[in-house]
């Protein structure tokens, strides 16, 4: 569904992604793990069209999107849930969700949008309870649910999730991860997830890529990578120490 070949990006003179190639098949959850500054978010931002690559190509669902605008890319069915949620805090929960379907309402897709709104509410009953509440007053976990719900409202074929667990309490992280799995299994969404919590990301994904200083240095099935000693040392941090010291 998504095929990236030899992607190079830079911020001004500083190269960030260096010859990155990866693919995500329809129905897969693929994780991208790596340390801070490895280029994970840059990769998602480049896929969603906010940053233009210097070299390389990105194909989504058979269409080359390398030079397309973010709105064109969303219209093709690729939505990003940005890091830090970035919801519209003065607006209500429902208004935020409706904004997610902005491109569809302008296409007179009203009935389907209402149906998807209900789908989001059934996925996140908490949001339904707070539908008229101003988004800025939601807890971190609720805001993350809202951000995912908003991306879902664009009726995407594929979601790009940037650090969905960032700043959330462990219990909420589990709940968000379960939601991601249900989006994949029940709604059929293909997902590329960037996550610092490598253990969680590897636990819910089918495959994963390891990004180091802008280069992919390892890849494989998540089942296999979670057992890799180097991944354990570098990315599974505290949890791994706890297990080995038990």
């Amino acid at each position: 569904m998504l095929t990236i070949k030899n992607l190079h990006t830079r911020y001004g003179p500083i190269p960030v992604l260096k010859n990155v190639s990866l693919h995500v098949k329809q129905g897969e959850i693929v994780a991208l793990i790596g340390t801070n500054g490895a280029g994970k978010t840059t990769l998602l931002t480049t896929i969603s069209g906010l940053l233009k690559p210097v070299k390389g190509s990105i194909q989504f669902d058979g269409v080359t999107i390398t030079k397309k605008s973010p709105s064109e890319i969303v219209a093709l069915g690729l939505s990003q849930v940005p890091e830090g949620r970035q919801i519209f805090t003065p607006l209500t929960v429902e208004e935020n969700l409706e904004l997610g379907a902005y491109q569809r309402t302008s296409r007179n897709d009203g009935k389907a949008v209402s149906k998807d709104l209900e789908a989001v509410y059934s996925l996140f009953p908490r949001l339904k309870e707070r539908r008229k509440q101003v988004a800025g007053t939601l807890s971190g976990g609720e805001q993350q649910m809202l951000a995912i719900g908003r991306a879902f409202m664009a009726k995407p074929k594929m979601l790009l999730l940037d650090e969905p667990s960032l700043g959330l309490a462990p219990k909420l992280v589990d709940s968000i991860m379960k939601t991601i799995v249900s989006l994949n299994q029940e709604q059929g969404l293909t997902i590329l997830i960037v996550e610092q919590n490598a253990r969680k990301a590897l636990a819910i994904s089918h495959r994963a890529y390891v990004l180091e200083t802008g280069k992919i240095v390892l890849q494989g099935s998540s089942e296999e990578l979670i057992e890799d000693s180097e991944i354990k040392r570098a990315y599974l941090g505290k949890d791994y120490a706890t297990i080995t010291e038990r």
Partner: peptide, 17 residues
């Protein structure tokens, strides 16, 4: 082609480092 290219690139990155 895509799969082998990805694996080749990550292998090359890894051995070079």
């Amino acid at each position: 082609h895509q799969w082998q290219m990805e694996l080749l690139q990550s292998t090359v990155n890894s051995v070079y480092r």
